[in-house]
Every structure is written in structure tokens, then in C-alpha cells.
Computed example of a mutant assay.
Amino acid sequence: MGHLNATALNEKGTSVAVGAGAVWNDVYGYLDGFNLAAAGGRNGLVGVGGLLLGGGISHFSPRVGWACDGVVGYEVVLANGTLANISTTSHPDLYRALKGGGNNFGVVTRYELKTFPQGNMSVNTFSYDVSQVGAVFDAFNDVAADPNFDPYVSLQAGLLYSSAAKAWSVSASAYYTKPVLHPEVYSGFEALPSISNTSSITSVASLAAENPTPPLNWLFATLTLGTSSETMLDIFKTLNGSLYDFNPAGGVTWNFAFEPLPSVMLSKSAATGGNVLGLNPEDGNAIVLLFSALWPNSSSSDAIYQQGRDTFAAIEKVAEGKGELRKFEYLNYAGPHQTPLASYGADSLNFLRHVSKKYDPTGVFQHKVPGGFKVW
């Protein structure tokens, strides 16, 4: 698919056609020259297709919704070998299913994405001593729980633990999609004693151009929480208790990223034909947690996978005990033991199964395509 990477703006500049083999660096680098952007991955090396089929969290999501909500058309090779153009007016059921339904319905060869004006943005990064973790969570929650969520916010609070050093680091990556240094919305982070505190203005393309991730072993899982700094702190305490003395051969680095999932972001979906993620603005603001690990020594993999499953189960129990565990599992962060498509709810899952059987009655993409989460 990597050769299907052409990017072309339409005559009016309102949408951009992107080959499914492109990465987001291709898209942002192209659109930057027109002072435009499209909702897509925050790391420019992420593939366009995978991110969009799983929903897609973008720096711009509070303004325009999930990245998949910005898709106005798909070119798809169906199970019977035919090439179809999919939109709100052509196969609208398949159009909706592709917005979060994964690789269950066909081979998408091209996406047409809605564009919008976008200049430079600000990048604000904070690093803190672990003693400040509770205060960092409070500052994060003040932003994430705000019913008047600032649509220019793109925020992560991060925990990183090195098993070799037995040391935690605490950070906040506070982006703002306007060229505003030190935006007021991040004043809570600014006020805390920090190890480092930087702020700069950059282009979307420059920000996305991250270095490649080393070719190491990975573990992923995810859960969704209500907005509660108390629950976040209890999760940290559980993580620390579970991981502190675990140091396999070669070591392991654990990374935990908390991200807002504001209701304003969810309200954008209906205006673009809807998606299948099963989320409603009425549910209120929430938080998505990415639980991950990275390690060099493959001989430690079994032990790390087991430790990861046990630790993840422990923090799920904490969130559930606090009454803050939500059912939604973000597909692009989900681990192989999770069921993100089922987490969309029975109505969405039944719809996905119906669409799959309609366009792929023999189950080509269920039985002959490896990888991904299946609907059958």
C-alpha cells in the first residue's frame, strides 16, 4: 500500500484526496503550503489508513471531531473485487461503518478528507518531579472536565516509568492550535514547580515530523474514564505498587498517557454523517488512557505481557470501584485481549455485522485478512 501515497487538493481547496499508503507527514507537509490542515495523526509517521479506520484522535478533534468524521469519501475495493466510491450519497451504510469499523469491509485505497484553514500552533511542554503528580492531575482535570472545553486544546498528561532506574517522570504536552504562547487555559500547569517548561510556535508539519520509534517490542491497552483527578491519582498509586519491583532482563519502559475526550468533540459527528463509535455528547467529558510498554529483550516478552495484563486489570478495577470506568475502548490504542468494536455498544456492533455481511457475504475480510479486530 505504501506506493498509494499521492496527495492532491481539490480546486476549491475544501478537500484533499490522500492515498491509503500515505503517512500523515505526507498530508501535513503538502497542506502546509496552502495554510490548510486536515484532522489526522499527531505523529507524522502514523499511517493515514489505519488511524482513520479506527476513529482517530487529532490535535484538531475538539474543533472538528474524530479524524474519521473528516472523511467525505472513500475509494474501496470490495470483497468481490469491484471498486466503489463511498460517501453519504453512495452506499451510506458502508460510509458510516468505515468510520471506526476497522478493516472489516474492504481495502480502502483513497480517502477524501475535509480541509480547514490552519496556520501555526503553539507547543507547551512541562516536566515535573513525581512529587507533583497529584497537582499535575488536578491541572489536567481542570481542563479536561470543563463543560466549556476550549476547542483549541490538545493535551496529554504523561507518566513514564523505567524499570532499570526505578524512577518515574511526569509530564504534560499542552498543544494549542492557535499561535498563542502560554495560553491561559494552561495556567494551572504553568503555576506548578517544574523541572522544565518550554513554549514555542511551530507549523503542524514541523510538529508532526517526529523521529522514528526504535524497532523494539510493544504492548498496548486502553480504557476510558470519567473526569476525576482523584481516580487518576489512585491509578498512579496502583501502577507504582504493581510495577515498582518488576525489572525483567533488558528492562522495560512503561508509558501512560491521559488525554481529554470532551463532549464538544463528540458533538461534531452527527453533522458529518455519523460514526459507529457509540459515543454521545450527553455522556459528558471523559478521559482516554493509553497504557503501553516498550522493551528491547524479546526473551522478556512473556513476563512483560503477563505483568501488563495483571497491572491493567488492577487499574480497571480501581476505575470501576470509583464508578469512573466507561465502556468505550479506543480501537487504535486497544490491546489484542480487548474488544473495542463490542465496546461501541450492541446497536453499533449489530450494524457493523450487518454491513459486513452485506458487502462481504463470504467473510473474506473476516477469515482471510490477518490483523485487526473482527466483527464476526
Rank of each mutant, 00 (worst) to 15 (best):
S343N: 02
F116V: 11
N5V: 12
P183E: 08
K268R: 04
R63E: 15
Q132R: 04
I201C: 08
G321H: 01
P62L: 11
E324M: 15
F220N: 14
G65N: 00
N35H: 07
W218L: 14
S173L: 14
D360M: 14
N85C: 08
D26C: 07
P92V: 12
I86N: 00
T339S: 12
A6K: 14
W218H: 13
P361S: 03
T202C: 10
A157P: 05
V71Y: 02
V27I: 13
G106S: 07
D142I: 12
P151H: 07
Y111F: 15
A39F: 07
A144E: 04
T227E: 08
W24Q: 04
A209K: 09
P183W: 11
G251W: 08
V18H: 02
F60T: 07
L219E: 12
L266E: 03
F373R: 01
L266H: 01
L219R: 11
H59Y: 15
K99F: 04
N197S: 14
G188M: 06
P117K: 07
W24S: 09
T109H: 03
S298F: 11
A249H: 06
L277V: 02
Y161R: 01
G226P: 02
P281R: 01
I304R: 00
V136R: 01
K368A: 15
L181A: 13
F351A: 03
L325P: 06
A67H: 00
Q307S: 12
I315E: 02
S196P: 05
N217H: 10
E75W: 09
L51H: 14
A38S: 08
A145N: 09
L31S: 03
S242N: 15
P92T: 09
H367L: 15
V16M: 08
Y95W: 09
V71G: 01
G47K: 03
F105V: 05
S131K: 09
S127E: 11
K368G: 03
I304F: 13
V204E: 01
Y111G: 03
F291W: 13
A139V: 08
P296S: 10
V18E: 07
V72I: 15
G73W: 08
V48Y: 04
T88P: 05
L331R: 01
L341P: 00
Q156Y: 12
G134N: 13
F220R: 02
A209R: 09
T222A: 15
F351L: 02
F291G: 04
V252W: 05
S154E: 07
A67W: 01
